[in-house]
Structure formats: structure tokens, C-alpha cells
Amino acid sequence: MSSPYAAQLSRIPVTRHEAPAAGGTTAYWTYGPEDADTTIIAVHGFRGEHHGLEPVFAQLPNVRFIAPDLPGFGETAPLPGRRHDLDAYVDWLADFARVAPGAIILGHSFGSIVASAAVARGLQTPRLILVNPIGAPALEGPRGFMTRLAIFYYWAGAHLPARVGTWLLRSRVIVRIMSITMAKTRDPALRRFIHNQHDTYFSRFADRAQLHDAFVTSVSHDVRESAARITVPTLLVAAQKDDITPIEKERELVRMFPDARLVEIADVGHLIHYETPEPAARAIREFLALP
């Protein structure tokens, strides 16, 4: 299915690369000019991969984005000999970031947990950007019951016989339910695009055990754990209809940072990167004082 942002993306050079990181090899893509004044390393969310953030990249053609697939997702294999907990993902990001020393760090959703923890633990960056940040424990949100069901779902997928567990985790019906739940737009064309993106990329995980570990990590941590130790200027781009972190919790979260600002986007939920990339990019442009 053609992306609504295809024309914009076609004007941006894209190249694939690989780099060693945390004992494994990370596949990553660069978007934009190699000689750009601004470079951003973008960390995607749970079950996603680098394609998900392309609509945001498309709005900022003069920025160089470095978009890796996280370990165990997309074209990046799991980290060898590691449980995929928060420490593993933080170690990975700190090591991977050597491909662009001094780059700005951006994290979306689960990526916001990884990015904020890495910066809090010493990853050097001039600024931090968090899109749809996970600003409260998953079990405390309005979808707490759904989170408990998801915990059982990923546990069952990891512990059932391999054929059944893999079928369950890659079920197109369940992926579609997740997609419908998160999408808030009433634009039928945009909804079809979102569902197609999830159908195409949401099941590109390496194996059941790694996926379970990553999910447990995503619901066991949030950005609040790291906020007070992040001293660099930070931008939070949050959705007013986010079911995972209510906007009231995002307003509390921003006050936990020594230096942060919050931009709220109306009429969107946890899919800012698909539904409202233009205002998200505008917030990033203003935060970074880009032309």
C-alpha cells in the first residue's frame, strides 16, 4: 500500500548500513543528507522497526536521521548471550550511538524508555526527544486490564509449543485488533495505511523468547525512572488521547525533568508518528531551532 508520505520520502536519500553494537550487528538506515547540520538517532517502539518513524523523517528533509532496528526486531538479530531486559537495550544504544557521536537522541514509545534510561546513565547527547513517552506504569493506565491480558498473551506465546506459540504471536487477527485499538483517525485511507504498516512490520521479531523479554521490559519500566537524572534539554511530544499514558500523566512527567517542555497534540493517540507527523515534526523543529 502506498504511503501518504511517499512523495515526501522519495525526495530524501536513504541508505542501509550495519554496525557492531553490544556484541551483535545492528542494521540501520540513514535518511537525509550525510552533511546535514543536525543528526538524530531515532529509536522505535515495541514490535515496530525503523519504517514506523518514516512519516516524521519525511517532514524534516534537511535533518539526518539514523534509524536502527532494535535487537530482535526487523533486520537486527537478538543480542548474543543476553536477556533482552532494559540493561541490554541501554547497553546496545550506548554502543550503537558511536556511529554518530554527539547526535540528538529520539525515542518513540518503548524507545522512549530505552532512550531516557541510556541518557540518564551517561549517553552523551545535546538534547533528548521523546515521542509518545511512556510516562506511567502500564498497569496503572486506562488500559490496565488490557495490559494484563497482553502479559498473558506474550507469556502464552513464549511457553506454548513452538508452532502454536509462533502462530499466536503472529496472528493477523490480534495484530489488527492492536492496530484498531491504537488508531484514532477517522480518515479511512490513513487507517488502511496504519493497518497495512502493522500487518507488514509488527511480526518481524526474531523469536518468541526475545519478544517476551522485550514486552516484559516495556511494561516493567517507564520514563519516570530516568527523568530526574536527565540534565539535557528534553522535548516530550504527547497525545491527548493516548490510551497507554494519559495526558494527565504526561503533564506530571514533564515536571520531573530538570529542563523539559511538553507539546500536546490533540485528536491522536499512541500513533503520533503515523497520524500526526506534521505537528510532531514542527515541535521538533522549534525545539532544535531548525530553519
Rank of each mutant, 00 (worst) to 15 (best):
R229V: 03
R251A: 09
R163L: 12
A138W: 08
D222R: 03
R172Y: 10
P188E: 01
L262E: 01
D213P: 09
V90D: 12
T276I: 04
Y31L: 09
P142S: 11
N62K: 15
T217G: 09
R176S: 12
V56T: 11
V173A: 15
A150Q: 13
V119F: 06
A158L: 04
G269P: 12
A183F: 14
Y153Q: 09
W92P: 07
E252L: 12
V254I: 03
I151P: 06
A162T: 13
Q240H: 15
A103E: 04
Y274E: 14
H50R: 15
V119Y: 03
L211R: 07
Q59W: 07
L236E: 10
T147M: 13
M182P: 04
E248F: 07
T245A: 01
L190T: 01
F215W: 15
L70R: 15
F46D: 05
F202P: 02
S171I: 00
P258W: 00
Q124M: 09
R170W: 02
V114E: 05
V99A: 02
G107K: 05
R208E: 04
H84W: 02
P279I: 06
V164P: 06
P68H: 08
D242W: 10
V223Y: 02
R255A: 13
V263R: 14
T166K: 07
H195T: 12
T38E: 02
E34P: 10
F287T: 15
D37S: 15
A189W: 06
R148S: 14
Y154A: 13
V232G: 12
G141S: 15
R255C: 06
I272Y: 00
G107P: 05
V263T: 15
D87A: 14
L139R: 13
G141K: 09
A117Y: 01
R261H: 13
G23F: 14
A117V: 00
L79M: 08
L86C: 02
P161G: 13
P33D: 12
G52E: 10
A183N: 11
P4L: 03
A239G: 01
A156C: 11
